[in-house]
Design a protein around this nucleic acid. Sequence first.
DNA 1: TGGCGTCTGTGCGGTAACGCACATAGTGAT
DNA 2: ATCACTATGTGCGTTACCGCACAGACGCCA
Lengths: 240, 240
Amino acid sequence: MPGFTEARAPRANRLLAALPTGEYKRLLPDLEPVTFSLGDVVYESGGSLQSVYFPTQCVVSLLYTMENGLTAEMGLTGNDGMVGVAVFLGGDTTRNRAVIQIAGGAFKMRAKLLQEEFGRGGPFQQVLLRYTQALMTQISQTAVCNRLHSVEQRLCRWLLLSRDRGESDELRMSQEFIANMLGGRRESVTVAAGRLQDAGLIRYARGHITILDRERLEARVCECYQIVKTECDRLFAHGK
Amino acid sequence: MPGFTEARAPRANRLLAALPTGEYKRLLPDLEPVTFSLGDVVYESGGSLQSVYFPTQCVVSLLYTMENGLTAEMGLTGNDGMVGVAVFLGGDTTRNRAVIQIAGGAFKMRAKLLQEEFGRGGPFQQVLLRYTQALMTQISQTAVCNRLHSVEQRLCRWLLLSRDRGESDELRMSQEFIANMLGGRRESVTVAAGRLQDAGLIRYARGHITILDRERLEARVCECYQIVKTECDRLFAHGK
DNA sequence: TGGCGTCTGTGCGGTAACGCACATAGTGAT
DNA sequence: ATCACTATGTGCGTTACCGCACAGACGCCA
């Protein structure tokens, strides 16, 4: 438990932060700090989950790869969640991949231990279950959004979600990468991003995107963003 | 516990069927048989959940309604699941509506009781958690499918999923209704269904759809169908 | 300084799905 | 039999997005 810097302390993760001090202290020895780089694969589709992760700085994309290689994202986790819910849901594995979208730190916990802790049924279990519902809400909204909204709207949503989780106005990722997340073409992203840039909402260059005007971005996004956000807030607030 | 007919017995629900006899017997007095009609709303978006339901014959759609009135389905539950996971996840409510898609029976349980039972941490909890993961898989796949596959493919998927859950080759629903589920236009469904009918895979007339050739339907569907199906089977098999 | 790889801009033809409008056909009530 | 209603069929112009092709632009390394 020696000198974590502020941002690297386990408590920077909202799930861990929501725990009573007693519970937290019990978990602490089992939390191992790790650092992820952009593009790291946290786990593969179908791979057995040995550990779960509580991000403090990094942001993780949950995505699916089709047989023909096309990909689409279904959810996003940052310091507001954890990676590996399948461990306590009992499935041991899932059909999706988890990929680092923004580099940074996280805390690792052995799957076995998490299962034991979950089995105690206390506040930790409650927090994990609440997060599960938040994640489901996010995935559901992605499903609907994918069907009913334009590339530009989805791009706005995605930028805002990433910004919230990364807690930085600057994102490091190419348009190609974003296209894979949105399940569209790179060129479509180029055009949509171009419009946002022309309007002065963002600026980008060779893999660097800066959000210049968050408010007007929110004005242009579809309702899906707010729904996910307020639902997450609700589920967290409730837990306290 | 008096004379339920075969199909109407609680055990016709796979979740309840997966329980050891002791557990099952304890729950039995709290299971109240109910019957739903086509179009019944099991719960509204944001409404507080007083009860959960274990379908035995009926099929329930989980869907979302946008501000502009457009709708899209994210998941489907029949005798392989339950309606109201938010109760044990701790959110008390969700952002989606649950609507009866195929009329029939179900067993109702008070939310409070379910929470208590879940809190015991036994096999019932395990079954519910496993189902939660199955549902998440389904919703995830819907998200991806919505983005990457055509109306016709999605229609095939939806027909097969409904058929599996309703356990009947005849479905009672208009093309308008299906369009709302798929998040598309009625006319698009008309055209796609017309092609399937011409090919001899289905037959339909004024709200009645009959699946004539299940095999060739499976040949035409996107991979999403099999993925959801095998993942559900895996999660159930594991539980035994 | 030059070259190479990655990232971005743009245009063009094709297709899937949309929105709308209207025609047709069963169905059930009177 | 008639009428009203709901379900289905179909066509047409428009839009969003795709697939492809290629051109520039920047960044890094030799």
